[in-house]
Design a protein around this nucleic acid. Structure first.
Lengths: 344, 344
DNA sequence: CCTCTCGTGGAGAGCGCTTTCCGAGTCTGC
DNA sequence: GCAGACTCGGAAAGCGCTCTCCACGAGAGG
């Protein structure tokens, strides 16, 4: 472990008194090696403190043992204050945790890449194509993101978390967002709410629009053809603002569906400000069941989004596709469930 | 952008009618190239859709343009349920966000590595030493982690976030945890609390022990030689439990310092359960000023921990050391500040 | 007019590894 | 006892790139 140049295969071979080829075979556990030599080689490996150079190995095997986690955004220049918020959001951590739970076991590492400009996306695809990583897990934020299609066209193994905005032949895992939103509607209705509003996310993101349509449809099925709605951007602050505007326009609200927990937290704050009790005066139901849900007071009744499991599945899907690129395009849809807590 | 093998330098050279060397020079912007050829080469690059192979380049330049983010834990086997919690914690996201804010600008990517076993650490250091990444940002969780020393001995450029438990010649950024805890004590005292307890983190982690000693020292300076303490492990659930035991043993408590916001959230829950009003009956002050602080009700008075800035500084430090390995060992200590909100 | 210098680009030697190809040695079966 | 099959390990050809070294031609100086 001393400094200086790291030992190479050559060094080990010299110490063991065999050829580089033999050492390579032993290390990679290839048959056809005399057990005795095997022994000698491992001895030499221990003695030299040899560790294979992953780069060199990858160059020839075309396998890197790395998967890229791509956060695809759309901005014009590279300084986007939004990113800070994104990482702070429980969403990111849950995805990473789920991903790592399977990648780690396989000894695969995760390389984080943020990409915003089209230029950057082009370079990214090129890097991926030239073997920078074995595949990519894609978190595509903007509505009209060219990246999924680019990836598909370049034949880069990729799995999206959340379906692509427009149909693209790429694997993805997603949540039945519409079903979840419908469950929220049913729950609010079943507990007797009659003047129900919604705080939605940005209308152009699939996950968000599915929640909107799922909620509206379910409400309509029960005779509520019109649902007052205010849009936020999934941050706590935006939820607070949205709640205020919603309330201003619909003072008699007795229930609200908030499209994610973070905004629900904001909504709770806004309600406390005007001394409406939750769930007494107004019931609040969130979405995601993130850590924010239990942090709130009252704790949030919410729709569980098994993000960790989904991310883990995405990782498995990706690994499978890397192994066998000709697999047919797969999508796995998870079912949400209602988590009853104090707020509704 | 069609499929098949990605174009190589060779291909570009053929198209441009020059040698590989010349193309390489043009692409890397090296002087001594006839402007006219320059033109021709770029033309060929565009035509072939060539993207340099980072792996091959790294192999020879010994620069990868990648920094490893190492989460160093200590477990005996690889399935640690703790990790899921770790990623979900705002801590992780804040660090990644801070790191990326500077790495991104430099076009450096972040490779996430979790490592638990000593075996794994050894391999990791080997990988790093053989040029897997240009350097490492280390989040060392366990108290007696051999990793920092291993890194230092292997001469791997590394910067720790949070000081190492035992002195090791390695760069680090840290927070003046003791000062922060002292600020919490002063604040509690100044608002009139007289029976003050503490919910601490694990005693063997530096960040945690510094908060404990800082708090105790400040309390002692004001004549409170003894501070009832219950320990948690920085999770919300552990904070809830700790609050309950603390309360059971010291029913008259009128103030409590909780060593991080997540546990403070749990403490708030426990207090609500026994209908103690905050801050009326008992003042609660947290630590970190994470997103949990504003999610709580009442919002948490807390000690601000500029983690994003610290992570960004760590990234800068690391990049500087990669550039110039002989730099003397540096440490940057950030000052915390008191954030007044509702809970104390 | 000849030599010296300098700017320019090609040839080729690696970076550390895997893997094909082959030759040499060992067994088996007839 | 020998052809054929099989085992084992070495030599060497790359993977795609960078960069040193060298050859060549042109402009400058004597």
């Amino acid at each position: 472990m001393r400094s200086g140049r790291a030992p190479t295969l050559e060094d080990v071979a010299r110490v063991a008194g065999v050829s580089r080829a033999t050492v390579s075979r032993v290390i990679n556990g290839i048959r056809n090696v005399d057990p005795q030599l095997h022994e000698v080689v491992w001895e030499a490996v221990g003695q030299t403190g040899y560790v294979p150079n992953r780069l060199a190995r990858s160059l020839v095997t075309r396998r890197t043992g790395t998967v890229a986690l791509i956060v695809s955004d759309s901005e014009t220049h590279d300084d986007d204050p939004f990113m800070g918020r994104f990482f702070a959001d429980p969403y990111f951590g849950r995805v990473v945790g789920g991903l790592m739970s399977v990648l780690r076991r396989e000894g695969v590492q995760l390389a984080l890449q943020i990409v915003g400009t089209d230029e950057g996306k082009k370079r990214l695809v090129g890097d991926l194509r030239s073997g920078q990583a074995d595949g990519a897990i894609v978190l595509s934020l903007p509505a009209a993101d060219p990246l999924p299609r680019m990836l598909a066209e370049a034949d880069v193994p990729a799995v999206m978390i959340g379906r692509p905005a427009e149909p693209v032949p790429v694997d993805y895992v997603d949540l039945a967002n519409d079903t979840g939103a419908a469950m929220a509607a049913e729950h609010l209705l079943s507990r007797g709410c009659r003047r129900i509003g919604m705080i939605s996310g940005p209308a152009d993101v699939p996950a968000s629009s599915d929640r909107i349509s799922g909620f509206r449809r379910a409400m309509a099925r029960h005779g509520h053809g019109w649902v007052p709605t205010a849009a936020g951007n999934f941050t706590q602050a935006s939820g607070e603002t949205a709640m205020r505007t919603l309330l201003a326009e619909n003072p008699a609200l007795d229930g609200v569906f908030v499209a994610n927990d973070l905004m629900a937290l904001g909504a709770l704050l806004a309600l406390r400000e005007v001394t409406r009790s939750v769930p007494g005066d107004i019931a609040v139901i969130g979405f995601d069941d993130s850590s924010a849900a239990t942090a709130a007071a009252p704790q949030l009744t919410t729709i569980r989004h098994p993000l960790e499991d989904m991310a883990a599945e995405a990782a498995r899907l990706l690994l499978a596709r890397v192994e066998e690129p000709s697999l047919r395009v797969a999508s796995v849809i998870y079912e949400p469930s209602l988590i009853r807590r104090g707020s509704a």
